[in-house]
């Protein structure tokens, strides 16, 4: 009896996961593996050579710097936005909350275009700045603007629900003791938000590292000046230098894995937001 049931039982249990793996294999897992297989095809020395070129080094470093700065800027801006929308009651609060989340819905290429049309030398504001010698787009500043715009909702999205759900008692106690809004934020809210700030920053960092659509519009794609790693990959691939493109792609993929790993450990492991909230 049990002998005849076992295979069917096994099939019932393992078939759906099996199908899922089969679907994911060509869509997700095999392409990712292809990057690494291709990257090592010419031997490790070729891979290292491709990475050591000044252009590749610059692109990686530039991308990392932009990602760090974006994470920092949005740590402050996103938290501020979350705080204002969570703790203050004012007319238009709801719509402001929607506006803040808008970048999730807008295609990144549109973000790039809109930045160009505002800040570019022919843009609505840019045309008045150009004679003064101020030109944000086609410089690292332009790239940073695009990244802050595109990744804005991530920090906000993590911090806002935490602020909403945080029990008001501690906050109220602080106010009763005569603490100012800033003191309350600094000493009561901020420590409770630490885990969220960290995962929000990592999320922002990871998205900034891979941003392409908006960057390609506003950067001018200048090697050694404004070419980020994703732009480098695209430019090298288009020029037929697949080995160069692939080496940097492999590094980006590895970095993303590392960040993702940290993110999972952080939000799932000890000291996660859920546990903190319960404390």
């Amino acid at each position: 009896m049990s002998d005849s049931q076992d295979p069917r039982e096994g099939a019932r249990r393992f078939l759906p996961p099996g199908i899922l793996v089969l679907v994911l294999l060509p869509l997700l897992l095999m392409p990712l593996a292809a990057i690494f297989i291709f990257a090592l095809e010419g031997g490790p020395s070729k891979f290292v050579d491709a990475l050591r070129s000044p252009d590749a080094q610059f692109a990686l470093r530039f991308s990392l710097l932009i990602a760090f700065t974006t994470a920092l800027v949005n740590c402050v801006l996103g938290t501020f936005a979350a705080y204002v929308i969570s703790k203050y009651r004012f007319p238009g609060r709801q719509s402001l909350g929607i506006v803040v989340n808008l970048p999730v819905a807008i295609p990144t290429v549109v973000v790039g275009t809109s930045l160009l049309l505002l800040w570019g030398p022919i843009g609505l504001v840019g045309r008045w700045l150009a004679p003064l010698g101020i030109q944000p787009v086609f410089t690292p500043i332009g790239v940073l603007m695009a990244h802050v715009f595109v990744t804005f909702p991530y920090m906000f999205g993590v911090v806002k629900p935490m602020l909403d759900e945080l029990e008001a008692t501690y906050e109220e106690a602080a106010y009763t003791m005569g603490a100012s809004r800033w003191q309350t934020f600094r000493h009561v809210l901020l420590p409770a938000l630490r885990g969220g700030l960290f995962s929000g920053a990592l999320l922002t960092f990871a998205h900034s590292l891979g941003e392409f659509g908006a960057t390609v519009m506003v950067s001018g794609n200048l090697r050694l000046r404004t070419q980020t790693a994703p732009l480098y990959i695209f430019a090298q691939f288009e020029a037929g230098n697949i080995a160069n493109a692939n080496a940097v792609a492999a590094v980006l993929a590895l970095l993303s894995f590392a960040i993702f790993f940290v993110l999972i450990r952080w939000s799932g492991g000890p000291g996660s937001m859920r546990q903190r909230k319960g404390r």
């Binding site: 160009l116 570019g120 030398p121 022919i122 840019g126 150009a130 030109q135 787009v137 086609f138 410089t139 001018g220 200048l222």
Partner: peptide, 8 residues
């Protein structure tokens, strides 16, 4: 086009 848009 990029030069027209103002790249340096």
């Amino acid at each position: 086009n990029q030069v027209l848009l103002g790249v340096p």
